[in-house]
Design a protein around this nucleic acid. Structure first.
Lengths: 225, 225
DNA sequence: CTAGTTTTGAACCGCGCGGTTCAGATACTT
DNA sequence: AAGTATCTGAACCGCGCGGTTCAAAACTAG
């Protein structure tokens, strides 16, 4: 990525043909890989999905492996942005802690459950062992970054006396755990679509527990309603 | 493992044995599938791993798909037992709540991080979408069962006044979330071996947070030491 | 021992894959 | 206009796969 516009940049694209083939190929590749898995995907079909001839694929990306590698990296970049954006709500939240956390959680979950995110995690899980470098990178600038940024936010909130956490990294890890882990089972490893109401419920439950443990006052804010 | 002392030595049999070929094949198949993924595995190699001729594989299990299906189901059965066993510690725990939860959590994590469990989850994640029936069954009698049994235990503890939870199912879900989710990142999706000390730390942190939220007294037991 | 079942190795088949080649079509540049 | 870089379709190659066949072997039962 980042070097997309080297030589052939900046054309206006007709609906067909002159768009940046490379990106079209990478997106199509990700779709096919996500659907069939790496081993079951064939380059032919990827080319078809991208509306491109097979040699074109091999011109832009020499190899099925590097095609996969590149398609995955692109997907990581696309995905991580949405998760990080969800955390913006936590910088200097105005209302009460509960609603800020709950909404942040809900946004994180929506990003987490987007079909692209789920497909990405599935593929990483599936082919990660065969692409250790890719896996490491993806984790570092994906979930790890989200967790770090959230830790920063939580630390600020603790400093301003709105949370009673002492280890922001651990709290961040655990808040994310309370959010995402339940989805594993509920979405059947990403196979089932989870209705938004359920996401909201999970976010609410996570926030509840988190505030019970780390809300101001130490006793947590028991919420009867 | 477990293949070392089979009963092949009973007769003058050479290298090949009279063991239940079928099980040997299933175990070998799981090993190869786990290592290479479904699409990249070839039956030839599975047969070799099982010390068996290729037609024998097709005699016992007619098809690569059903071979996979069956191997996975066997692995599920093998795995779930270990996790359920870890929960035994929670029936009428004698000491304090903290140590019981912590040790239970640690055992669950050890089971969760066993190479077989990790491989199983990886394969489910990888090929689940192509085997929806298998995925559903595996989830139902795997994680779902663990979560349900834990909920039972927690409910008993709440009833006897040792926890202040109101929704055992949710608490079970969240305790498991606090345990397993952090491992996703730390083990790099099961690629990295996590040292036992780290498992202990995660179990401790999970227990800490859980008790802060649901320990007796509502305020949770803040534990300095 | 005989009779019967299972396992074995090796050869075989058809197929679809990853990857390449090439001549011709297409689009941008000047 | 010509010139250049790219894209295209189709054919092609070699290979290894899933799956089968078969006759010889190994083992079991009686």
């Amino acid at each position: 990525m980042t070097e997309g516009s080297t030589t052939k940049a900046g054309k206006r694209g007709g609906v067909r043909g002159r768009i940046d083939k490379r990106q079209a190929i990478l997106e199509a590749a990700f779709r096919i890989f996500a659907r069939d898995g790496y081993g079951q995907s064939c380059v032919r079909e990827i080319a078809a999905e991208a509306n491109v001839a097979k040699p074109t694929v091999y011109n832009h990306l020499g190899d099925k492996e590097t095609l996969f590698h590149e398609a995955m990296e692109a997907a990581v970049v696309r995905t991580v942005g949405r998760s990080l954006a969800a955390l913006d709500r936590l910088r200097e939240p105005e209302g009460e802690m509960r609603s800020a956390l709950e909404e942040t959680g809900h946004r994180l979950l929506k990003s987490h459950c987007s079909s692209e995110s789920q497909a990405l995690r599935g593929l990483l899980h599936a082919e990660g062992p065969r692409f250790p470098g890719l896996l490491k990178e993806a984790q570092r600038q994906g979930p790890q970054r989200v967790q770090d940024v959230l830790a920063d936010r939580l630390a600020r909130l603790a400093l301003s006396g709105r949370l009673t956490i002492t280890d922001p990294d651990q709290s961040s890890e655990q808040f994310l755990a309370l959010l995402t882990a339940p989805l594993e089972l509920r979405s059947r490893l990403g196979t089932r679509r989870v209705p938004d109401a359920e996401l909201r419920a999970v976010a609410r439950a996570a926030t509840d527990t988190f505030l019970r443990a780390y809300g101001v006052g130490g006793a947590g804010e028991r919420d009867g309603a």
